[in-house]
Design a protein around this nucleic acid. Sequence first.
RNA 1: CGGGGCAUAGCGCAGCCUGGUAGCGCAUCUGGUUUGGGACCAGAGGGUCGCAAGUUCGAAUCUUGCUGCCCCGACCA
Length: 444
Amino acid sequence: MRLSNYFLPVLKENPSEAKIKSHQLMLRSGMVRQSASGIYSWLPLGLKVLKNIENIVRDEQNKAGAIELLMPTIQSADAWKESGRYDDYGKEMLRIKDRQDRDLLYGPTNEELITQIFRDNIKSYKNLPLLLYHIQWKFRDEIRPRFGVMRCREFLMKDTYSFDVNKQDAENSYKKMFLSYLKTFDRLDLKAIPMRADAGPIGGDLSHEFIILADTGESEVFLDKNLLDINIKKIDYDQNNIKNIMNKYENFYSATDEKHNIDQFNKLVDKKNQLHTRGIEVGHIFYFGDKYSKSLKAAINTKEGKNTYPQMGSYGIGVSRLPAAIIEAKYNNQYMKWPKSITPFKVTIINLGKKGDEVDKKSDDIYHILKNNNFDPLLDDLSDSPSSKFKNHDLIGIPFQIIIGSKMKKEEYEFKELGKNKIILSKNEIINRLKEIYESDQPS
RNA sequence: CGGGGCAUAGCGCAGCCUGGUAGCGCAUCUGGUUUGGGACCAGAGGGUCGCAAGUUCGAAUCUUGCUGCCCCGACCA
């Protein structure tokens, strides 16, 4: 993409309403703009990041065997009245009336709707287990939206729902999602720590929060450093493997401040392994049994020909929160640098030449080559001063820059990874370098 | 919802106390000079001062009401 044809409204100064780094950077780098309190437009750069995250989440759901569908944002209140949550959910639910005075709502979550779909279409144990998910905008009329897209009222969420014949199968589904979440966050280059949680308003008796570690996170967390070293990359979805990995996590102490027990912490964790830091909740999984299948009468036939209510769970990831969460986790007080898995552009070319000169032609040339190699390059072909270009490119956080100026010989290209020193490479070396970077498993 | 704060050009702010019809920096546009870490000169455009009512000859400025936004707390992906 040529910057001259793009829409990237960057700000030199921090808008006064933005108080935390991710919010400031997302506004300044032209990723988002606020439309109302807790409601945001995603501008092109931000949307690319959001979509990249969404696709990783989707890919890992698919690998775990979940099936994607799409439910609407606006729901009829009927199912919510059946489950009893129309009254329970309170003011956080945005209620709407249509022209016929029917009760509608902007979905804050989808247990009722998915259970309804299940009820209308599945009658037999033979169709289970079933994991269904969608990635859709939700609305929760938060008491106090804040921190930009971190705590929004309108937000994009991946939510999966599991249906199983019995509790044991349901636990297997739960474990699959547990692993899927670890893999998802790992691909986003995040250290996510699963922590036992209260089930909250969704109800149920088994629940984990997934917390990513960030100094500026909202909640205090306490954990054993050993948790940071567990490698889940090579683990497949075999139930034994999953069980082992879950056991590993459960073996080490971790807790949010509400659940923290200082005596246990000191007893179970060596002083040198004790980590007290902050975190951001990016995922939450629940097993809640037949709470909804029963209240919505979604019964199925068992092998024995009897009726039973399927055991359910739900599993959420705050997709639109993640760009901000990643910035909070990755920001090093000087620059933000997108993980290579979600960077909006894989590489950016900083053209320091004038329109039509040799430097300009060289930039154009490498731009086309990178484009043909599917590296989705951004080319800064504006006529700004060099210093302003450098600043802007550092701001938007694309991890790799190619700088083309008159200082270099014809066959030489400056290649710079954000936060590291420039190196001089040839055209072919650049291609190979980028291939190496983007085709390897190593996070950048 | 409780407590605090803010609202003046796209962004950051001054002006308000002491009323006289709006200004600065950045950004934008035009012309020229520049070009390796937020350049320079000259010129230009852009604001019913959040909304409404009141006081006054006169309101960005004083009064009242409303709305929006931000921060702290309870709640949450």
